[in-house]
Design a protein around this nucleic acid. Structure first.
Lengths: 127, 127
DNA sequence: GCCAGCTATATGTTTTCTGCCCACAGCGGT
DNA sequence: ACCGCTGTGGGCAGAAAACATATAGCTGGC
């Protein structure tokens, strides 16, 4: 609890759109997505959550999958995005753009206030 | 469920930093905060959730409160931010700035890909 | 053949967050 | 006295996230 206070605090349900975007760029299997997700701030790799999301996405028809035999290891389930998935991604992107706006508003207001305080209080003790 | 796909999708726990920022700007009671929160994309006013957050914040020592008699209505609990709360706000702001960065990355990558596709596929059918 | 370790997928459990509904109390108007 | 408004608070159900665990195939060593 409150262990890492500066954690990114990503948007709710951010995993889903990320998966859709990743899969739109290129089909992949779960384990690989786990790696590629790190780009989007998913540090602590959570296979469980990932596969669950993937399943749900497929159940909703946003992605589809097929088994692929690998010569170097166990079979993998290759996912690719569907037309519907792309549309969903589109919608989500809009929502996320809005979210960014809100975040901008918050941060702007926060920094503005910090600046104000600095102006009021000349210089506490720092050199 | 998936009712409003373009919903803002704000970060998890976004309420907390918002409250801290609002209280940093100016002490207030819950009902008033409810109004001021609308600026941050909290459309559906949810008194229950608000007060719960406030309570928790106080329990953690991030804010403190005192009853104030009102001449025009029932007594109100006035909240103000504490030193610890400001530090927490600071940390959260950093985290949210990171989140914005991630969001930027996502949206940039999304739009970039959209642009690429447009270049590949000349013009579907839209006139 | 058998075990250990890696890749890869999947499920179960528990906790947290969120949204929605409702209860209660004080005050003012009629 | 009753109603409606302001203001605070709790309960509950469903969604989401975190954490832990199970399974299965393949490879290499012995």
């Amino acid at each position: 609890m409150t262990a890492d206070p500066a954690a990114p605090t990503l948007p709710k349900n951010f995993l889903r759109p990320c998966l859709l975007l990743l899969l739109r760029e290129q089909p992949a299997h779960g384990y690989e997505l786990l790696e590629r997700l790190r780009t989007f701030g998913f540090e602590g790799s959570d296979p469980g959550g990932l596969y669950r999301s993937l399943r749900k996405l497929e159940e909703e028809g946003l992605v589809r999958s097929a088994w692929e035999q690998s010569s170097t290891g166990p079979a993998r389930r290759i996912y690719e995005i569907t037309r519907v998935g792309m549309e969903e991604l589109h919608r989500r992107a809009k929502g996320l753009a809005e979210a960014r706006g809100t975040l901008d508003a918050f941060l702007g207001r926060y920094e503005e206030f910090v600046a104000l305080r600095r102006a009021e209080v000349p210089a506490p003790a720092s050199g």
